[in-house]
Amino acid sequence: MFYALCISIVSCNIPLSRHGAYGYESAKAQYAPFDRLQDPDPTTRAHLARVITGTCGAGQNAYVTINNKAERSAPLSVKALAKYLCFPA
C-alpha cells in the first residue's frame, strides 16, 4: 500500500543521457519505437528508489520525471521503478 500512495505523488528530475553523442533524430531512429528497455540501469533505479522511499517515509512528497533518454522507454522505466519500489532487490 505504501507504494500505491507514494507512486501517485512521485516525481524527481535526474537527467540521464548516456548517448549524448547522437543527435536527436539519429537517436530517435536508433531507439524507436521505444518499446523495450535498451539501456537498463538497475543501479540508478535502486538509488532513485531509496531516495523516493526515504522522502515519502519522512512524510514529504517525491516527484520523479522519467523520459526515454534514460533507458530508452519511459513507460517501461516507470514500470521497472514501481516494481523495484514494491519488491526491492
Rank of each mutant, 00 (worst) to 15 (best):
E71V: 01
C86W: 13
E25R: 08
D41H: 09
G54N: 15
T43M: 07
N67G: 12
R18H: 10
P88A: 02
V64W: 05
K28Q: 08
R72A: 07
Y63L: 14
A82I: 11
L76W: 01
K83C: 05
A82L: 13
A32Y: 04
N13Q: 13
K79I: 04
I14V: 12
R50L: 08
P40V: 10
V10W: 07
V64C: 12
G57E: 14
H47P: 02
C12G: 12
C6F: 05
G59H: 13
E71R: 00
I14L: 10
D41K: 07
S77P: 00
A46Q: 10
Y31D: 13
S11Q: 06
A70Q: 04
E25Y: 04
S11Y: 03
S77M: 05
R45N: 03
Y22P: 01
K83E: 15
Y63C: 12
P40C: 08
V78G: 00
A27N: 06
I9L: 11
A58P: 00
A62F: 12
S26W: 02
P42D: 09
D39L: 09
T44N: 04
G20L: 11
M1F: 10
V10G: 05
P40Y: 07
Y22G: 04
D35I: 01
L85W: 10
I14M: 03
P42M: 05
R36L: 01
P75Q: 07
L16Q: 03
R36G: 01
T44W: 02
Y22M: 14
Y63D: 13
N13T: 15
R45F: 02
C6Q: 14
Q30P: 00
A4E: 15
Y24W: 07
I66R: 00
A32E: 12
Q38R: 06
V51Y: 07
D39T: 08
T43E: 12
L5E: 11
Y24M: 12
D35G: 02
S11M: 06
S73N: 05
A27Q: 09
Y24D: 11
G20D: 14
F87D: 14
R36A: 06
Q30T: 05
V10L: 14
F34L: 04
R50H: 07
